[in-house]
Amino acid sequence: MAKGVKPRVKVPKSAEAGEVITIKTLISHKMESGQRKDSDGNVIPRSIINRFTCDFNGENVIDVTIEPAVSTNPYFEFEAKVPEAGEFKFTWYDDDGSVYEESKSIAIG
């Protein structure tokens, strides 16, 4: 597990049924591209978050493939329609096999 990784998510606590809400997500991660060299000239191995997904009550909302050009602390903001009360589940997949998860529930009304 890479050092200092912390997922953060902002989802409204409640929404009207059928309302489109804005979700903000951010994960602190160094996103080492694999293109850089250290002071001795050796390539610093790539270490990035390569995939991010969001699901609502088991249904996929967004599934992102992330490439090395994405900079440090990747931030995603997107919209989702909330048909019913439930739980948003967020998952980040690290190059080293680590998986970081976060979930937020949302109420109707």
């Binding site: 200092g4 912390k6 953060r8 902002k10 903000k24 951010l26 602190s28 602390n73």
Partner: peptide
């Protein structure tokens, strides 16, 4: 505060 990248360092 969610958008402010400085807050990441506050968490650190």
């Amino acid at each position: 505060d969610f958008d402010n990248p400085g807050m990441i360092f506050v968490d650190v």
